[in-house]
Design a protein around this nucleic acid. Sequence first.
DNA 1: AAATGTGAAGTTGTTCACAGCT
DNA 2: AGCTGTGAACAACTTCACATTT
Lengths: 207, 207
Amino acid sequence: MLRTEIPRKAIYRLSVYSRCLRRLENNGIHTVSSEVLAKAAGVKSTQLRKDLTYFGQFGTRGLGYDVRQLSEMISELLGTKSLQPVVIVGIGNLGRALLSYRGFEREGFEIVGAFDSRPGQYLSGDMSMEVQAMDKLPKVIDKHVVKMAILCVPPNSAQEVANKLIKLGAVALLNFAPIVLSVPDEITVNNVNLAMELENLSYFINE
Amino acid sequence: MLRTEIPRKAIYRLSVYSRCLRRLENNGIHTVSSEVLAKAAGVKSTQLRKDLTYFGQFGTRGLGYDVRQLSEMISELLGTKSLQPVVIVGIGNLGRALLSYRGFEREGFEIVGAFDSRPGQYLSGDMSMEVQAMDKLPKVIDKHVVKMAILCVPPNSAQEVANKLIKLGAVALLNFAPIVLSVPDEITVNNVNLAMELENLSYFINE
DNA sequence: AAATGTGAAGTTGTTCACAGCT
DNA sequence: AGCTGTGAACAACTTCACATTT
């Protein structure tokens, strides 16, 4: 099965399933049916089953899925079994928040460096963090074999920074700048645009 | 044209077009073709035109679109012409960052209150902000006629807080908690899950 | 001539219906 | 009997082709 045929949304749903499975595991549940897991994930059971068939067969007919096994399989697929190194570029309000956000480590990502055109030592709550100058990027990316970067720079420098990161070997970017980055086909960009999410909601408020 | 027939993705793209149009406007450009605007927005020109026809006819054949006029039309549609009041609930790392994030005001949203189970006065950089106790929510929502809320509370209390907000009159939620909220049909929820975005990227790193 | 607006065709993603295991 | 796995039907979205307007 070629990966390119798999709907991108299916990959997102895999993350949702993964979370639900972990919760089940914590509750000591060993086996789950597609019906129950799907309900927890907020999708139809047929969709869950179809999503899984993109990758193989993991269930037992008449019984369901082994929670632990399915959970591990998905982690494997998503590449979150081992800690993935990440750099953050652009330490404004948002970058600072993400730096102090502990959620990433819990989910299998390690922030190995924070960079900004204005480097320095910052205090965030009870914790201090070092923000390095941009010219330190190559060394850190090289040392930790970083493939993933979080972009929190202002829109007017986002493309430039993206180019730099790609040249240094990044292949996946999480972009918070409200612009459309143009990158080569082999680079994956996920955009998060907070203002856009609000605007979208705003539309639905007026009936 | 019924709003329910309009693809949700089209509404998201409207936000993108809006941003591109503003940039064109700032550069003193008065007229733009679907070809050029689409390229700036990272979509096909036919898609842009189709998206616009969901709402009416705004262009001039042989000429293109009036930048200012199209821009205003989209703002009108999205309901961002007038300042929309928003509350933030849950002032942890992320909530604090969003509070100090100036982007919202620029885009037509006004944060009229910040709430947390641990209220108090916080310092963020050079600016101080008041975080109110949860029992102050009804009064603020009522006073400002708030329909929109940003949820940054921990996953285990997200559903409960969502219920409370909905009961108080919120109809649109921007949820950062990594759980699937169950809400009545007439309520719109947009989810932003940072860990999930990283996981999704992670998948694409392994070819 | 240039560019929009749109029905029809094509593509992608979701759901159904049921065959096939355990 | 119960539940998965999947081809086929269906629905949603995108793109094409071209008629239409300036």
